[in-house]
Design a protein around this nucleic acid. Sequence first.
DNA 1: GATGAATGAGTGTTCATTCAT
DNA 2: CATGAATGAACACTCATTCAT
Lengths: 190, 190, 190, 190
Amino acid sequence: MRVKDEAKQKALREATIKVVNQIGFASSSVAKIAKEAGISPATLYVYHKDKDELLCDIYTDIKIELARAMMTGFDHSQPVRDILKRMWLNGFRYLIKHRHYLSFIDQFANSPFFDVVDMSRIEPHFEPLIRVIQRGIEQKIIKDVHPELLKVFAVRPMMTLANQRQCGGFAFSEEHIEEAFRMAWDAIRL
Amino acid sequence: MRVKDEAKQKALREATIKVVNQIGFASSSVAKIAKEAGISPATLYVYHKDKDELLCDIYTDIKIELARAMMTGFDHSQPVRDILKRMWLNGFRYLIKHRHYLSFIDQFANSPFFDVVDMSRIEPHFEPLIRVIQRGIEQKIIKDVHPELLKVFAVRPMMTLANQRQCGGFAFSEEHIEEAFRMAWDAIRL
Amino acid sequence: MRVKDEAKQKALREATIKVVNQIGFASSSVAKIAKEAGISPATLYVYHKDKDELLCDIYTDIKIELARAMMTGFDHSQPVRDILKRMWLNGFRYLIKHRHYLSFIDQFANSPFFDVVDMSRIEPHFEPLIRVIQRGIEQKIIKDVHPELLKVFAVRPMMTLANQRQCGGFAFSEEHIEEAFRMAWDAIRL
Amino acid sequence: MRVKDEAKQKALREATIKVVNQIGFASSSVAKIAKEAGISPATLYVYHKDKDELLCDIYTDIKIELARAMMTGFDHSQPVRDILKRMWLNGFRYLIKHRHYLSFIDQFANSPFFDVVDMSRIEPHFEPLIRVIQRGIEQKIIKDVHPELLKVFAVRPMMTLANQRQCGGFAFSEEHIEEAFRMAWDAIRL
DNA sequence: GATGAATGAGTGTTCATTCAT
DNA sequence: CATGAATGAACACTCATTCAT
């Protein structure tokens, strides 16, 4: 028998993201995605149970990749702020580099599909971020507020800023990025 | 006849928001919306050129309503921070009260429809906000950074926090709201 | 607005029966039926909720028509045997005349759709038959056995004999038909 | 290897019957049948040229088995009626025991597949039945009518009565079965 | 102005079958 | 022999929109 094709798998993912990027979530049909991926619509169902699962799988993948990208280049002996800055910049650069992922991510996260994602597969990858924030709170460096608030003011802006649609006219110099992180930090620091 | 018209118009808008809320942007069809509004699909086309325009019109309406809700209860003699707080709290409360609008707004804003909205109809209503921020910058109270950055750290969080999907588990006490504004302010203030 | 077209309704029914007749239940698709009826597949859904309902509706229609055809040309003062013979011959002739209905009926009755038919719409039309049989039993003319047995030996053969597929090679003279009814009668009479 | 083959062959047959039984002829797909049989869809094509042939093969098998079941437990010196009764009861009991076969048989026999079955493989197994009937005619015990008529009134009811769908509510005591055969006999006897 | 009927084009999905392994 | 991957064609059904009334 033939063996499942890793390349096809990947092509499918990239095709999905590209199509969603170009024509939006609502208009992205299985047929268009398959065509872009260079496979038959039927083949899609060899790799994913249905359209919903395809989209959820891709979302999960990207989120995990983002987390992995964020969690590098620091060590736990560094000060909280330095670690967070490292993570923030890592994340921001990953998103800028993969801007086309963001359109997918944001459309997905605002769709009803989002409610159905198995978050337990994603959350562990963000553990280091959670821990360093907790450390910051313990050290009285970061405001002792509901974690949701910290996320909204520190992590979300990273995504919003990288978003083409919402901040498309905004070209980022190194200086801008520094400023942006400073604002995130000011928001959450004590 | 005029009265009947307006009632239908409004029913159509509320029906659209409700349907989008319940089944998402991608699954919301003209037929379902019309049914929910208690009118014929054909009638929809009396009021809006096509489906896209219906959605854009509603988005614009809500945004203007949000702006109007924000721009009340202060006068320009007050300090910048107080005015901004008033606006922020006004906006947040409006959004909490109309949470079902937010699901529509967010799905819309992340879709390609957004690119096609005539922003010049919305922007004037946010002028007071822009002006008070500029005053803050001139008075060296607010960071002199790209306006986009100020928006991302001060206004966006207001919407994100009110969003069911993204912050569903978060119940807001008055204290939380105060905290939230403080963080927004810390992010943008000098 | 346009008005629902009775002719289209009927064309749809005849087309369905014809298609099922020609290519069988399992291969009869909505597309083929619609094409045969000269309408768009989408139009089919204006007249019937879905394919299942279309088939059930047609089955019910035919059964009622058959019952109506059977219950004519006699009066209740006649002897039981004469009434039954009248009904039997009426039915048989109706079926021979509409042989193409039988293929549909038989395929339908052996499919899972059958389990879902609302029999209470059909049964009342067969009431006169039930009653005359009961009279026969009371008068000790007909065997006092389970009604199901009487049905199997008296009514079913009428349908089987008219069935193209099962008795295709059998050309019926008047004599044959008389013989057939005599056998049915012999089976059930005391 | 031979043994394994036969096991698969049999599993395939039983799976097909089961699936047809459960979801009907029209919905029974190769994939579902293969899954039920615990084999790959591709393997099915090792044993049968295509889906049609699979179904025809199974029909033929069952019909032959039914014939074999009927043609036991008597000898040709017995009276015609006794022999026929033996056959009828044998057949009826076989069908009751294998009720799940009947759903398949009946759906098949009313489908266009039926027209394509090679009857010459089945008919020889029913020869003894044909012969005893002919003897009955010669002995002036059985009506001298078209054989098709005899089949319709004597053999078909045996199948109809055993059919779940059509006589589901009818529970058979020994007495009922005796009655049923008596009716079949009354129909065909002189 | 308001409507339900009507539809071509499209939806997501499954089909029977083939093929490389 | 046996398989799971692969697919073009078909599936039932829904879409946004138009049109006669």
